[in-house]
Amino acid sequence: MTVKRWPRVLAHFFLIALAVVWLVPLVGMVFTSFRPYAETSIDGFFSWPDSMSFDNFRNAWDRGDMGQHFVVTIALVVPAVALTLLFSSMVAFAVSRFSWRFNIALLMLFTAGNLLPPQAIIQPLFQIYLRIPLPEIPFISNSGELRGSLIGLILINTAFQSGFCTFVLANYMKTLPKELNEAAMVDGASVWRQYWQIVMPLTRPALAALATLEFAWIYNDYFWAVALIQQGDDLPITSSLRNLSGEFFTDENVVAAGSLIVVLPTLIIYLILRRQFIGGLSLGGTKG
C-alpha cells in the first residue's frame, strides 16, 4: 500500500536514528579488529587510528586453530539442524494433522520442554552421558562414550531445540488445509507419503526459517559443548574464540577479529535466506 510522503520521511528518520544506535557497537567492533591492542588500550576505542592491518585476523585464525574448529562445527551443526527439523516436523505432523489420544499432552511436553533452562539439567545429563558407552570412532566419538563425542553433542542439541521447533511447526501445519490429507487418503497414500510428499513440501518456508534460526543458535552455543566435551580439539568454533583469552591477559582486538571471522557464516546464511526466512516464519499467522 502507498504511504503519504511525510510519514515516510518520519519513518526513515526514526529508523536511521535507531540504526545508528544499533550500528555503533558493531562498527566499534569492526574498527577495533583492525587496530593493535597497544593502540586502543592507551587511546581508547573512540580515537583516530594510527595503524590498521589484518594482523589480528591472521593471529586469531592461527591461535584459535579455526580451520580445525570449523570442520568440527560443520560436522555438528549440519546434522543437528537436519535432525532437529526432521524430528520436530514428524511430531508436529502427527499432532497437527491427526487426532490422537496424546495429541495435546505431546505438544505440551515439547512446548514446556522448550522452557527448561539448560543449566538446570546439565549435571544429571553429564552423568547420563558418562555412562553410555559408544564404539570408539575417530572424530565421531573419540572418547568411547556419549560424553565427549560429537554424537552426544548432536543429540542434546536436537533434543533441546526440538521443543521450540515442534511448537512452531505444529502451528504452521495447522494452517494447511485439512482437505489435503483427506484427498491423499482417498488416493490411498500412506501416512509417510502424506508427511514426506504432501505436508513437508508445503512446510518448506517454515523449515527454511527455522533452519536459519537453528543454525545460528546451535552454531553459537557453547554451553553444551563446553560442559560435555573435555578435549580442546573436539570443541566447535565458538570455543576457539575462548581460546583467544588468556589466564590474565586477553588481546581484545584479536578477539574482535576472531569474532568477525566466526560470525561470517551465520550472517551470510541469513543474507542468502532472508526472503524465505521472513516468509517462512509467518508461524501460522491467520490470513485475514
Binding site: 553429564f126 558418562l130 573435555q230 578435549q231 580439539d233 575462548r242 583469552s245 589466564e247
Partner: peptide
C-alpha cells in the same frame, strides 16, 4: 597436550576429572 582456555578449564575441572581422558 589437550588445551582448553584457562577459564573453561577451571570451571570444568570437575568434569575433566570425571572424564578421565587426561
Amino acid at each position: 597436550i589437550n588445551t582448553l582456555d584457562h577459564n573453561t578449564y577451571q570451571e570444568n575441572i570437575n568434569a575433566i576429572l570425571q572424564a578421565g581422558e587426561d
